[in-house]
């Protein structure tokens, strides 16, 4: 190659690559870290109402996920990508769907399942078929059924968190609203949690027993809304999941038809967390908008089926896991509309 003639040119090689030469400033890492950031407010609220234990569990979960990611990538001779935040996100999400009172040993095991088996065996981020965090949870639920279904803590009065530090009083264990509803009936539920608008608001704000990150609907919705605003997710999946949960619960949830309580169905359990942060996982969900709506409705329907008729009080985790493998089928059905068909085709 000839040297540049001009004197004014510094001598160096120009980058030669394929078009386009400008790219948007969105990166995978940016997306992941933003989602993680959106999950921080609910976590802090959780620390506030359940105690530091939740923070420790989340930290253990994150650290073990990152560690497993590092080890897996080293072992499989792949580039280490722990800085892209995906393992951190998996760690946070997995911690969010386990009860606050479990041993810190659990998330370590869950991380192996979530990161190594459910993700890296498939080829790493982008190739997994099932949502790693939820697979980790399903594994923990199968392995430690008692801890995972009973280590719930009652939310403490806002200021008790400080006395927790002072006195080290153990938190009070309790049952989740959905479990009470399922196992002890609606009467007991009303006795424990009350009813009406104050119930909805306290549940929506997060003052209820539940998994570490699922209780505060408000903060989760705010986080989700921020992601929608940033265009990282679209409204399709959250709206269709929550909408179908509400509608199906309304139709089938009560005695007879149309007697269920749609608002309660949305604000209890992990519906909001699942709808905004789990079901919207890029890798395991469909890519087309129509497909996403169908996927969301499927998740909502399965959630309601499991909640009302199934063996578990909450069903959204399994519902998402069951819909995960269908996402490619759904994408196959709802391919994006081509700009125009071939010549001679219908215009």
């Amino acid at each position: 190659m000839q040297a540049p003639e001009s004197q004014s040119l510094p001598h160096r090689d120009w980058i030669v690559s394929v078009s386009p030469h400008v790219k948007s400033n969105e990166t995978v890492a940016k997306i992941m870290w933003t989602v993680v950031a959106c999950l921080m407010p609910p976590l802090f609220l959780s620390v506030f109402i359940f105690g530091v234990q939740t923070l420790i569990i989340t930290a253990v979960s994150v650290i073990s996920c990152v560690a497993v990611e590092y080890v897996s990538q080293k072992a499989l001779k792949r580039p280490v990508s722990i800085m892209d935040g995906s393992a951190v996100l998996t760690g946070v999400l997995m911690a969010f769907v386990i009860p606050p009172g479990v041993s810190i040993f659990l998330p370590v095991l869950g991380a192996v399942m979530a990161i190594y088996i459910a993700k890296h065996l498939f080829g790493g981020l982008g190739f997994n078929i099932f949502n790693p965090a939820l697979m980790g949870r399903a594994f923990l639920l199968a392995t430690f059924p008692v801890a995972m279904t009973s280590a719930w803590l009652a939310p403490v009065d806002g200021f008790a968190i400080f006395s927790y530090f002072a006195s080290g009083v153990d938190a009070v264990s309790t049952a989740t609203p959905l479990a009470v509803m399922k196992e002890q009936g609606m009467a007991k539920f009303v006795e424990m949690f009350g009813s009406g608008t104050s119930l909805y608001t306290s549940f929506f704000l997060g003052w209820r027993p539940g998994c570490i990150g699922e209780t505060s609907g408000l903060l989760l919705v705010l986080g989700g809304a921020f992601l929608i605003y940033k265009k990282y997710i679209t409204y399709h999946i959250p709206v269709s999941v929550l909408g179908s949960i509400a509608v199906f619960t309304w139709i089938f949830g009560g005695e007879g038809w149309f007697g269920g309580d749609p608002i309660l169905a949305v604000v209890t359990g992990g519906a909001i967390l699942g709808a905004f942060f789990m079901a919207t996982d890029y890798v395991t969900g469909p890519s087309t908008k129509t497909g996403q709506v169908v996927y969301g409705i499927g998740i909502g329907a399965l959630t309601v089926i499991i909640r009302l008729k199934g063996g578990y009080p909450e069903g959204i985790c399994y519902a998402i896991l069951l819909m995960n493998p269908l996402s490619s089928v759904i994408d196959g059905f709802f391919k994006p509309k081509r700009f125009a068909g071939p010549v001679g085709g219908a215009k």
Partner: peptide, 13 residues
């Protein structure tokens, strides 16, 4: 150690 391994689904794994 891990109840998981005597669970039916663990057979596959």
């Amino acid at each position: 150690p891990l109840l998981f391994f005597i669970l039916p689904s663990a057979g596959f794994f």
